[in-house]
Each structure stands twice: as structure tokens, then as C-alpha cells.
Amino acid sequence: MSAPLLRVEGLKTWFDTPKGIVKSVDGVDLDVGRGEILGLVGESGSGKSVTGFSLIGLVDKPGRVVEGRIDFKGEDLRTASPARLRSLRGDRIAMIFQDPMMTLNPVLRIGTQMIETVQAHRKVSRAEARARSVEALGKVGIPHPAERIDAYPHEFSGGMRQRVAIAIALLHEPDLIIADEPTTALDVTIQSQILAQVQKLAAEMGLGLIWISHDLGVVAALAQRVAVMYAGRIVERGTIDEVLDAPQHPYTAGLIGSTPMANERGKPLRQIPGSAPPALGRPSGCPFRPRCARATEICQTEPPETLTGQHGWRCFHPLQTPTEVRA
């Protein structure tokens, strides 16, 4: 594998609250290559969105990135100046958010919002910026882009609005797109249309994509590799096949087990016992320990990552031995 587009090592993002420090992201390692889609999966509060925002320096106060390296094309973004980060955002690294109703400013035409994005990074005329925006809208499948560009966000349906957001993300043909649950607010048909479109565009443009989602099914359909996040840490990562077919971490196995399947209709859905640890007062050692049937004494210490090829996990008692996985 060539040098990845983005390599994150030991990322820690903490929030100082009056009740104590919330360690939302507590030592995350990730890498994404060009033309690769990485699924970042976890339940609510696992820190996956904060991870996304940490990468581009958009963590809201009182949060701050306290540790780690964010290596993007050989540049450490954690030490980059705010001005440098601003010039990268929307240009080399774009972001797509969850709720398409909320991400566009309701009182500005989408054309205005696209043109300003172009002009924030390139010294081009309005007409040129507009032509580029129309082209981007056409690329994501908006019909009559030259007319629709003068519409306001409320004149689009939810799915179309998310396409607009994707078009904005694509304006500068970025190297990396961070998509934070971009299809969660959409209905299933629209979701599959958008997924197909994104997959096609990512392949065509050779961009790296981090797809943050709580939906393992979506990630399985879209991504080549997946990272499973739990309580601020990546507990397991690898290719889709490795992780989904031979999960090592009991949490990953639980997550797969609790996904509704069409062929198991009528049976009660399996659940992971217990609930995610509170943001404050997470257990020491393996954070999954209180919910894990396999936990022993040793789980009170931090489990190191076991890495076999690309497949890695943080567990003292993996479900299968690495040799079994290979078989």
C-alpha cells in the first residue's frame, strides 16, 4: 500500500466540562488512501463525529485536540495554523453533514453559497464560479442545474438538498471527504440512490472518503475498509470482509449480531447487554469490559492493538485466533 492520504495516530479530543474531562476521542488511529472509502462505525456518543471534526480543526469549545498526529499528505494538521486549516477546508478536505435541512443557510440562494465556496479558495470571477457550481450540481444528478442554482434551500427536497451539499463538497475536487452520517436523515430509497452516486463519484475522482455512520449495513455496502469505534477508541479495524465475516472484538460481533437481517424476520433482535458507558467515568482498561461476557482480570488494563495484516483489534480475548481468521 502506498503512503496513505490521511494517517491519524493517537488522536485524543477532550472536552473540559464543569463535571470533569470528557474524553470523547481517546486515542484513535486511522488511515485512508486515495480512492478508498473507510467506514467509521459506532453507536451514538462513541466519538465518531468528534473524530471527524477533529481532523479539520472544527471541534466546538470546550473541546480541544490534546494529543496525536493528523498526517494529511505529509502535513501535520494538528499543528497547522487556523488560516492554513481554513484554506484546506472546503478545498482539499470537504465535509458533508448529517442533516441536509440544517447545513445550508435558509436565507441565501444555493448559488450564493456555492459561489462563495469557490471564491473562498480561488481567485475567479463570479461568472466562472457560477459555471463551476452549475457543473457540480449536474454531476450529482440535480436536474436543470442552471435554473436550480438560483433556488433557495427550502425549495429542494431532503434528498436533493443532500445532493447540493455533496456538490458543494465536490466543488474543488478535494482529496478527502469526511461524510458524517450523510444519509441518516433520508428515506431508504433516496439513501441508496445517494450511496450509489457517492460511490461512483469517489471512484471517478479518486478521492479518499471517510463515511461516518452507525449503520453497519450502509458501510458494508459502500466501504472497502471499516473501523469500529467504541467509547472514544477504535476497537477493531480492517477490510469489510475481515471485520464483518470474522470479527475479533466482542463488541464488533455484538454490533453485527444486532443488525436486522431480512432472513431473520420475526425473531427478536439480538442486543448487546448493558449500555454504553457514560461520557464521564468510563471504566479503566477495556471500556467494553462491563458489558463483555469474556472479560477477565486482565481486561482492567488497556488492551494493545493486535495487528494481522490490515486487520487489527484491541482485545485480550478475541473471538477467534488469527490463524482461524485466515482459514
Binding site: I56, L58, D60, R86, S87, L88, R89, G90, D91, A94, M95, F97, T103, L104, N105, Q113, E116, T117, A120, H121, A165, I168
Partner: peptide, 8 residues
């Protein structure tokens, strides 16, 4: 936040 993510 999206406006910031667009680099404005």
C-alpha cells in the same frame, strides 16, 4: 459549522 467546513 458547514460554512466553516467550506473554508469560508
Amino acid at each position: 459549522k458547514f460554512a466553516r467546513a467550506r473554508g469560508l
